[in-house]
Design a protein around this nucleic acid. Sequence first.
DNA 1: GTAGTGCTTCCCATCATGGGAAGGTCAAGG
DNA 2: CCTTGACCTTCCCATGATGGGAAGCACTAC
Lengths: 148, 148
Amino acid sequence: MNIGEASKASGVSTKMIRYYEQIGLIAPAHRSEAQYRTYEDTDIHTLRFIRRARDLGFSVEQMKTLLALWHDRARASGDVKAIALEHIAELDRKAAAIAAMTATLRHLASNCHGDGRPDCPILDDFADAPPESDLPEVSARFGRANIG
Amino acid sequence: MNIGEASKASGVSTKMIRYYEQIGLIAPAHRSEAQYRTYEDTDIHTLRFIRRARDLGFSVEQMKTLLALWHDRARASGDVKAIALEHIAELDRKAAAIAAMTATLRHLASNCHGDGRPDCPILDDFADAPPESDLPEVSARFGRANIG
DNA sequence: GTAGTGCTTCCCATCATGGGAAGGTCAAGG
DNA sequence: CCTTGACCTTCCCATGATGGGAAGCACTAC
């Protein structure tokens, strides 16, 4: 199976398959005589594993660990669960950051009549809200939310 | 006021102040004889505005528009509200994507006894879950969630 | 044998942010 | 007056995961 077929079968783009190989997430693919990468069913299985983990928001680093645990038949399920729980906690933190943003924005928007008049509480808030040091809020605790 | 003081007064790092100037989000600062950037209170006001918008998750492009509207005394509040609502919708989409991930992960983790035994439903799911085309789920609708 | 598709590698872009080097400037204290 | 240290300048590079695209082979179908 060439890389294009492997991509279709796994749902991982050819670009990403090559990238994952380059950074060592997956082993270098076998090559045909013409240096084409070739993939077996087991490789597709691995790629699907990666796809699934990626869809659940795991980073490449986490996937490296998960793949190692997957290949280690003697691993402790607690090790896997710990990674999952840590990731859940991280996602919860991001969700909380987003929720805080939307709550503030919804409040501001609800006070903005949103018609042709220039008066706008949203801009007023942006211009006059106290700097974050006054409120130990989300952005202070979690840093810049890289969710944009 | 030099850039360091402006940074402390606004909560925007010196690096980012220079960057915002470079990409045209803010006007080039006045310079001292020694080419040091100097800032007035009005500049700090603008930087705080940016800081606030950034903390609420707005992109640089959105901030550009918001700043333009802020400086336009004749703007319609509806224009501002539209941007805010669109941003809220985007944040809600991301929150939904995160919620879907955590729901799945929580379910998998709850079925994982998480002790020293190797049996692990989490890895089993990763290895055997059907490819995403079977389920028109979050990742398919919203693309790769860049929330990681 | 040629057209078209697929593969290869290599470089560049994203977005917002930080790190760090090399060198100029300023204020305080000896 | 000169040194020291803190500050400023510009320039380059890195992040993480992903895509775009070019130049050049390889393969397939007709």
